[in-house]
Design a protein around this nucleic acid. Structure first.
Lengths: 218, 218
DNA sequence: GAATTTTTTTAGACTAACCTAAATTATTAC
DNA sequence: GTAATAATTTAGGTTAGTCTAAAAAAATTC
């Protein structure tokens, strides 16, 4: 069985190997885990000896099939707990991440089975992220950042690329949530900021950075 | 903040200081924690330096006011989670202990607040044990073991003194649960076993040991 | 392509929580 | 009250996960 720390490293490596098809570097992992490169090297050796990643000195790591399965199991738990916190306990979507970071490490397959049933087998968490099924299968939805869509077009918000509470609270304030219909009215060339209309009512301007983190279903 | 291990020691010391008003000995704690006396001595020093217990070398420990508060907070979380597992997720009452042992260490006062509301501020867990409120106050119910009540009398089961899955599954099989009305028909002098009628229907015999672990409200 | 900079690894040390074995203190037996 | 026994503490060691500083390798610059 994996330790809490091993699970966290594996999850980070999984996420990092999603964006960028190259091997994941020691320093990337150190950055993601808020730790030192030397500590990462130690853990890399450990996960490598357990065949969860493959590793060639000085050339970064690749996650193995088994590593991916284990990482997806942790991600499944994380997202099911986030769904529970928002839909059953009434948490705000910006306040669930840290608590779910703890809950995801509870070891009880029966608990997760029953939680999944209790929630009605949700396919996505409150941030629009897909929840892997118990075999690690993901229903991946096609999506693109709001920053990509053209002036005059509209789309439905289906996910966010940043789950930080500050970003999500900002979205709350401007009335954007999963399912909102957003129409791009203006696009500034010099800074990439947008003028958008949310749900046919509220007009707001969005920075390029914000619009890159709002994902539109295709 | 307390570590997971510190919380577990503190909880064990709290429980041990409930039965028996004497100080709690190193070996009692070692037995309860399934560890060695030398390890207990180490932890005693640590908890003592944090003023959660008071400790005189070779003479056992006493829990302090702060220690009691912290222990009761862990116990509150444990019992709220057990209630959640049984009443919301449909767990059997015998299957919740180990999972709750993990869940009780999640650090989030907001989560416990919201869980308490979601469950409707329950006063007792599925084993009939009182749930301390957020200030550590307990509604202690008067109760006595079934083994104490006289022949011909009856009483209502309000709690169990043993929460092991084997005992609880046994109670399930013989139809005894919290709220059952049990009437003592016979009492064997030589081994203390009882003949009882459960809810006016089922007649069963109970060993002395079993009857000592079934608690009747007064 | 040699020199510098950056990244990664190694070496050695720290802490929390545990262990065994030995020493110490308390308790019990006579 | 002394001797034997039992409980407790101390001493010293282990493991997981972390760190800093130094060494080694790779990447970049000119």
């Amino acid at each position: 069985m994996l330790s809490l720390t091993e699970e966290n490293y594996l999850k980070a490596i999984y996420h990092l190997s999603q964006d960028g098809s190259r091997g994941v570097s020691t320093s990337e992992i150190a950055e993601a885990m808020q730790t030192r490169a030397a500590s990462v090297t130690d853990m890399i050796k450990k996960l490598s000896s357990k065949a969860l990643i493959s590793y060639e000195k000085y050339y970064g790591v690749q996650i193995t099939r088994q590593g991916k399965t284990d990482a997806l199991n942790v991600i499944r738990k994380h997202r099911l707990w986030e769904t529970f916190l928002v839909h059953k306990l009434g948490f705000d979507w910006g306040d669930v991440h840290e608590v779910a970071e703890q809950l995801e490490h509870i070891q009880s397959p029966l608990l997760i089975e029953k939680l999944d049933v209790f929630l009605g087998h949700p396919s996505h968490d409150p941030h629009g992220h897909p929840i892997p099924d118990k075999h690690g299968k993901i229903k991946e939805q096609k999506k693109q950042p709001l920053s990509n869509i053209g002036k005059g077009t509209q789309g439905k918000v289906c996910s966010v690329a940043d789950s930080s509470s500050s970003f999500l609270q900002y979205l709350d304030r401007i009335g954007i949530h999963i399912g909102s219909v957003v129409e791009v009215q203006e696009k500034q060339t010099f800074d990439g900021s947008l003028e958008v209309v949310v749900d046919g009512k509220k007009k707001t301007s969005l920075s390029r950075e914000a619009s890159e983190n709002i994902l539109i279903g295709i």
